[in-house]
Simulated scan of single mutants.
Amino acid sequence: MKVVGNKEDVNRIELSHKGLNVSFNCSMKPLPYDYNIDISKPKTIEIIFKDSYEIEALIDVLEKFKKECFGLIGEWRQYYDE
């Protein structure tokens, strides 16, 4: 797995699969406790996966993290470029 972009200031994530040429974007929703987040100017990082094992491993980690932090982190939504 490879992460490209400014990892310090992100409001949009692009997920890509290296071999399949498949990708999609997701943007951060405004947080209920922070209305100052500007999502009109995308600050994107790209996460590039080499294979489906890396995707499954990240999903497992994120599910565990979500259980630990539920209610404390913001929500993300899938975003389609048209």
Rank of each mutant, 00 (worst) to 15 (best):
S40I: 08
P30F: 00
V61G: 02
I73G: 13
K43E: 11
G19Q: 11
K64P: 01
E14K: 07
C69T: 15
S52T: 11
N6V: 08
Q78F: 14
S16M: 12
K66N: 11
D38G: 04
F65C: 10
L58D: 01
Q78N: 12
S52N: 12
H17A: 07
G74K: 12
E68Y: 08
N21Y: 09
Q78R: 14
D34Q: 10
E63C: 08
E14H: 04
D34L: 08
K41F: 06
E82N: 10
N6C: 04
I47L: 05
L20V: 04
L62K: 07
G19M: 11
Y33R: 04
W76V: 04
S40K: 15
P32E: 06
K18P: 02
Y79G: 00
K67R: 15
I73C: 15
P30G: 01
E63I: 03
K2N: 09
L20S: 15
I39M: 10
K64R: 15
L72A: 11
K2A: 07
K67I: 03
S52V: 13
K41N: 13
N21W: 08
F70K: 12
I48P: 01
N36C: 05
I37A: 02
V10Y: 02
V22H: 09
R12G: 00
K29F: 05
S16I: 03
F65T: 14
S16C: 14
G71A: 04
L31S: 09
D60A: 15
S40C: 08
E82S: 10
V61R: 08
L62D: 07
E63S: 06
K29V: 09
K66P: 00
Y80P: 00
A57T: 04
G71K: 03
F49T: 00
V61N: 11
Y35V: 11
S52Y: 12
K43A: 03
K67L: 13
